[in-house]
Design a protein around this nucleic acid. Structure first.
Lengths: 211, 211
DNA sequence: AGAATAGTGTCTCTCAGACATTATTTG
DNA sequence: CAAATAATGTCTGAGAGACACTATTCT
């Protein structure tokens, strides 16, 4: 029984130059999501981590399975099944040398190989969505950050201005972050640095639309 | 290049006997999620629909991709990748004759083959979650239903009693359903029948946990 | 002193949640 | 008329959203 080729692809987001960016690999005249074929006895997530390891200088990244694509009619590469993962790394994460991958702002993506623009769009929708009810946003920030930086991150991803006082009230009320004793100095008044509390239970207090 | 066997499995939920039930196929001494191998040039969703077609008398069912499992270490069937779909059919949907599948209440599942109990648990979590912010619950009801039946459906799935007045206020305020001119008679005062409005924009008004 | 950024409090309005009685039908 | 189920309204408290000024540092 001949079966179909299996690969994982990764939609890796990060913040760079005040914009949300995705990492893309060059392909003839186009770009594509980085990916690898899954090994014979390899777990899917293992393969996804292997892809990340070829791209970035980093031990850890937020990684989550996004969706599995496998419609031969839609996919240029006949008969390939692609398990797509969604990954986040903090701003400033370095790329490994020797790879031809490049960051591209999601707001103005280059031309991607068949169907992959939709995949990126879906990943972005998921990121925005998760940002609202989970603590995923901290994965895009360094370990310590100011409230202004945090707010800025949210604003970039949601493409929406947020009110500073309301933002602070709510983020602090959720006790998802804690003060450090450090300040970041720069232009203007120094800002207090905060740290994410992974132990904090990020309870979802969504107001139910339906009962 | 030898690649891994690919199959789809379906977690099919329905309401029966006042309980949420899943459809299971018999396996030696155990039960398993119904599934099929994916064809050479078949789309994944196509394969999932094919599985449904072997099980139930019905043209349409709510179908959504749930998760893809493919960890050889965890999976009994070495080197199989399983794309699991999540499906809902209305109460009373008939099974096709000649299959050995059986309904089982999710609250007291029989013994499932390796790892599949977790898959059902995940599907249930997703169902509960979606119930709160989307209109997925209507997929478990016939086309016309009373508000009491709808409330009952929610209560069964969420395992939680709901207040009748608040339930009605909110469900009606969302204008996700519309009155019909029909009544259902039975014991006690006849109840008005309602119908789901698929055209209604089920806008998610989730209260953000994080700004 | 001026520019830059950080940090803080109040009011209003909406809506979730708690709660009990009346209405209509059948046997 | 008793039993069964359907249908309906009000109050309270929490929190989202709108809004403007003071504080601290650097040059």
């Amino acid at each position: 029984m001949a079966t179909r080729a299996l690969m994982v692809n990764v939609v890796l987001f990060s913040l760079r130059d005040e914009a949300l960016q995705v990492l893309l690999a060059p392909r003839v005249e186009r770009w594509e999501l980085p990916g690898e074929t899954v090994g014979e006895s390899e777990a899917l997530e293992e393969a996804a981590n292997r892809v990340l390891a070829t791209l970035i200088r980093r031990r850890e990244a937020y990684l989550e399975q996004l969706y599995t694509y496998g419609d031969p009619a839609r996919d240029a590469r006949q008969a390939t099944v692609s398990v797509v993962y969604f990954a986040l790394v903090p701003a400033g994460t370095g790329l490994l040398p020797g790879t031809a991958v490049q960051w591209a702002a999601v707001a103005s993506l280059p031309s991607l190989v068949g169907g992959q623009a939709d995949i990126v769009a879906y990943a972005l929708r998921r990121l925005r969505y998760k940002l609202e009810y989970s603590a995923v946003g901290f994965q895009l920030l360094p370990q310590e950050f100011t409230l202004s930086e945090l707010q800025h991150t949210y604003e970039i991803i949601l493409s929406e201005r947020l009110d500073k006082r309301n933002f602070r009230r709510r983020i602090l009320a959720s006790s998802i972050i804690e003060e450090t004793s450090l300040l970041r100095t720069g232009e203007g008044r120094p800002a207090r640095l905060y740290r994410y509390r992974p132990d904090a239970v990020a309870e979802v207090k969504a107001r139910r639309l339906f009962p």
